[in-house]
Amino acid sequence: MYMSHRRKNRQFLRLLGLVVGGLLGSIVFAQGVGGGGYSWHDSFALFSPSTLSTIDRTILFHIRLPRIIIAVLVGGGLALGGAALQGMFHNPLVDPYVLGVSSGAALGAVVAMVSGIYFGLFTIPLFAFSGAVCTAFVVFRLGMVAKRIPLETLLLAGVAMGMFLSAFISLGMFLAGEDLHQIVFWTMGGLWGRGWMEVRMVVFPFLIGVPLLFSFTRELNAFLLGEKVAQSLGVDVEKVKKWLLLFVSLLVASCVAVSGVIGFVGLVVPHLLRLLGCEDHRFLLPLSFLVGGVVLLWADTLARTILNPVELPVGIVTSIIGAPFFIYLLRRKKREW
């Protein structure tokens, strides 16, 4: 009987290899895209940096490459967070921002911009990160009823908190004066001008959060059978929920801090993978991470070339493509999830 089990594992490894290959290919391709065109020479310059002129090296290694890495990490983090939370709540409409992380981060960024506090390039990301983590914590506490975390109260607390914070964001915009465009751009979600410093900022939470989330795949599978069954299988349900919310919030907060609010990747990517028949979290989580990375990389590559020389905020691209695609998926296959 376990023949098929092993076969499935092999299938998964093959798929994983395919996606990793796709990711690497996308990175190499994206490396060659710039200035409204594609140059294969730029793509393959990755492998022979010594032949480049100084200016080319700066463009390729200090502008394009870190941005590509940020896109992959942010896309992966959002999709992984979405997959974990959707599984935990057994609800397809949950996105990684349920805890109000996005509005918290936005408010943090707005505070930094309006107050004029500045202590280096990482001021805004740091404020955004703090805002996101604090909001997640408050929503988490508000959503807790008698030491348990029911989905409904958590969602409502997240929505209420988001509205509350939005009012302050609007207030910030109103008072911002000439900083207004900066705030507006930030909330649209974009990756322009992100460099190695931002990569260094997110890499640490990723190194912790991603493997820890991967270690919860069996618990998440047990959640598929309902919380009561999971508990009877020996899963410490409430504790697992708290850990998952903590890791996802950290991961997503660090994504939002460097990229602003990018919608739909965290919602659509795991959903898409489920519809393609990947419901087992042992496979779903790694695939969500990789596919999320690929998707955001392509979206960002599109965003920075489609209206050359203007660069679009990538959040606009993901929403313009993501929302109709999501509706299409919903209409096509209503029975599941």
Binding site: Y2, S4, H5, H90, R218, N221, L225, L233, D280, E336
Partner: peptide
């Protein structure tokens, strides 16, 4: 809303 092969569902009992 569970679409896993039955043996995977049963194997969850090994948790």
């Amino acid at each position: 809303r569970v679409s896993l092969p039955c043996q995977e569902v049963i194997a969850m009992g090994r948790f």
